[in-house]
Design a protein around this nucleic acid. Structure first.
Lengths: 228, 228
DNA sequence: CGGTCGTTTGAAGTGGTTCAAGCCTTGTGG
DNA sequence: CCACAAGGCTTGAACCACTTCAAACGACCG
């Protein structure tokens, strides 16, 4: 647990303003709040700490929605990037929300209670999870689409765009703290092949992923790979 | 368009009772209704006939939620079996609800208006679409799971169970009016390979699919294939 | 009864897997 | 600050599952 002044929530709130119509008034209220955040180490299972339904707002760090399969494999359904809202899955359906890095988050329930009559916040949070639902369709067509490089490119574009909205992309460069195995489990590939595909994309000058950082991200070029 | 007495809706309503806690009282109200159904030929796009959000109740026939991809391919996100409720996708996201056979359906909005204060119906409909959301996760892990026979078995089990709830399975036999190409587009396989997999399953005595009908469905045996 | 659509089967090609080994990075304790 | 250990990345070689294309067959519909 860790106290914070409302300022740390501001970047995430600004993203909600841009993507989900959060009002400036509501941002003000959030900024005024003092609330304790929860902190999870990499690999930990996040929530559900209370009875569903409740929403978790990831202020910093990466997480993923995943299921453990037989044969020691794992299916990653979606990634959660810093600043996004996610609904931790109800236990019992075999899905968990798992931290991929150190994660700092806050329970949206608490924010709603503390901001009083700010219905606007609830609406924005719901829109945010609706967007997550739409992304599952995208992920479905990614998995069924045949070529590995095309899947990779499509996922990279999605993550880039989501990070961009959060203000975490600067001139085609951004942090991407995922292991090849994480990509593999999300895309239904082997980690070895993720390496090879990434090599192909690098050779074509479409991006450079090194030490958990992407640079030289060529969005238009990657979109051509998706379509091919 | 086609008039019907509330009786035709009854089988579907009974399924909602079993799966989504629809009340007996509400079934009574539905039975008393007289309402016109819509009819679509195979291949037609179903809705949206009005502005979203609205729900469509498929009383008879099969449909699928799909997207047309480049290169003349198609991704099927989900199938809709007779008696189920579905939310036709908002146009603009590139998804359509398409009839696979002749489909007879009714707009849930109209039912809600006509049944008056039956909040119970709305709750059951929402639960039904929530189940559909959960199934998308299952479909995701199907697609990423490696073996084609395993994907097929998993999908067949899901369809069997959904038809069973609707009362459409009799002693391991049921109608399954899908083409191999439909399976292929749902599972990310080629139609030719669907044929081969189905042959393997038949040889193992797990099911017999012929003339759009399944017989000798061995649920336990197919589950073993899923796990392998 | 002929045409169309779907299914079945074969042969050849390819994209991705698996396994194993070596390298590079990062974190840890002396 | 260095040495070592652990984990992740990279690469190669062999294998296999699935694709593609083509042709023949069968069922269904007018």
């Amino acid at each position: 647990m860790l106290a914070f002044n409302g300022a740390s929530i501001e970047a995430a709130a600004q993203a909600l303003v841009r993507t989900c119509d959060l009002s400036a008034d509501c941002v003000e209220r959030l900024r005024a709040l003092e609330i304790a955040t929860e902190r999870y180490p990499a690999g930990a299972v996040i929530g559900p700490t209370e009875e569903p339904p409740h929403l978790t707002w990831i202020l910093d760090g990466w997480a993923c929605e995943a299921r453990d399969l037989t044969h020691g494999r794992r299916q990653i359904f979606s990634f959660v990037v810093p600043g996004e809202v996610v609904r931790p899955p109800d236990a019992g359906w075999g899905r968990t929300l798992r931290a991929l890095t150190v994660v700092e988050c806050v329970q949206a329930n608490e924010l709603l209670a503390r901001t009083g009559a700010c219905d606007d916040l609830l609406a924005a949070l719901m829109r945010s999870t609706a967007l997550a639902g739409a992304r599952r369709y995208e992920h479905l067509s990614r998995l069924a689409g045949r070529h590995a490089a095309s899947r990779m490119a499509s996922l990279l574009i999605e993550l880039h765009d989501r990070l961009d909205v959060m203000g975490l992309v600067e001139g085609g460069a951004f942090a991407l703290p995922l292991r090849h195995e994480d990509f593999a489990d999300a895309l239904g590939l082997s980690a070895a092949h993720v390496t090879r595909c990434m090599g192909v994309l690098r050779e074509r000058g479409l991006l450079n992923l090194q030490f958990k950082r992407v640079s030289g991200f060529d969005r238009a070029g990657l979109e051509k790979v998706c379509a091919s």
